[in-house]
């Protein structure tokens, strides 16, 4: 399998511009659910270390795009590369081959994902949630994983909650555990799918703080959010999506202050 992986990597690097600093490279990515086309030829670049915020009305395809990046959804058209490697497929010659589930799972290890509804494992404590994937997927020794998990929980401000079950944590605490859980796999890219939308207003700040700190540490992040303040303050780029297309993208301060497109103006007029 290692041989296959290396050959795949080689062919992929040949296809992608070698040495390009792109973490995510979307070229004409399209996706339909039945007759409903949710993504229409999305072309986007996310550079290494970049923090990109995606905004837009619900149903605009932001979340679907995120889910395509770690192959929770298959794309129908276009090419989607993460760190130079095609997502979910392998290109040999001019043919695409579906990846085996095992290889696809291996790709996902490097991409952390944080969900709107946290999706912590309710039958495990905070600590067990964090060590689950390192131990079960990477085969890390439990002692090592626990040590790192404790450090991660401390980093998200929850060192005292290691033995608490998710049901006994507030939404903000749960989401911070979820972030720690994703970070435990040492991902090179973090995806946030409306991480604060399910939270009570007074709990939003604590989650955003952890994300800011993460951004400051140089993590590449794609954040689907309605937190314009966060976008303005932290993001390197802002993408406005509507109806499955990228309507406008650019510097967040510029787009938010001076939107060029009518639809962007209308949307921002409603949320700001």
């Amino acid at each position: 399998m290692t041989a296959m992986l290396t050959s795949e990597r080689r062919s992929d690097q040949a296809a992608a511009a070698p040495g390009s600093g792109l973490m995510v490279e979307a070229r004409g990515v399209s996706k339909s659910f039945g007759t409903n086309q949710v993504l229409r030829s999305i072309t986007l670049d996310v550079k290494r270390g970049e923090v990109m915020c995606m905004i837009g009305p619900s149903g605009s395809g932001k979340s679907t795009f995120l889910r395509c990046i770690n192959h929770l959804e298959n794309i129908d058209a276009g090419r989607l590369r993460v760190d130079g490697r095609l997502v979910g497929y392998e290109e040999r010659g001019d043919k695409l081959y579906e990846l085996k589930p095992k290889v696809a799972a291996r790709q996902r290890r490097d991409i952390g994902m944080v969900f709107q509804r946290f999706n912590l494992f309710p039958h495990m404590t905070a600590l067990e949630n964090v060590i689950e994937a390192p131990v079960q997927v990477k085969g890390e020794r439990k002692g090592v994983a626990v040590e790192r998990a404790r450090a991660l929980l401390e980093r998200v401000g929850l060192s005292g909650k290691a033995d608490a079950y998710p049901a006994h944590l507030s939404g903000g605490q749960q989401q911070r555990v979820a972030i720690a859980r994703a970070l435990a796999m040492e991902p090179k890219l973090m995806l946030f799918d409306e991480p604060t939308s399910a939270l009570d207003p007074e709990l939003v700040g604590e989650v955003l703080d952890v994300m800011k700190q993460l951004a400051a540490s140089g993590m590449t992040m794609i954040v689907v959010t309605h937190e314009m303040g966060f976008a303005r303050e932290v993001a390197d780029s802002l993408v406005f999506m509507d109806g499955g297309v990228v309507v406008e993208e650019g510097d967040p301060r510029e787009v938010l202050a001076n939107p060029q497109h009518e639809r962007t103006k209308a949307f921002l007029g409603k949320v700001l």
């Binding site: 770690n70 929770l72 589930p101 095992k102 799972a105 291996r106 996902r108 290890r109 991409i111 952390g112 994902m113 969900f115 509804r117 999706n119 912590l120 494992f121 309710p122 039958h123 689950e132 994937a133 079960q136 997927v137 979820a178 859980r181 994703a182 796999m185």
Partner: peptide
């Protein structure tokens, strides 16, 4: 969402079943 969270962490289908879904 439990399935997705486990999948996103790189767990295989069998492992997701055994470690996450069945216990719940």
């Amino acid at each position: 969402g439990q399935n997705e969270a486990a999948t996103a962490l790189g767990m295989s289908w069998t492992k997701t079943m055994r470690r996450v879904v069945l216990p719940q």
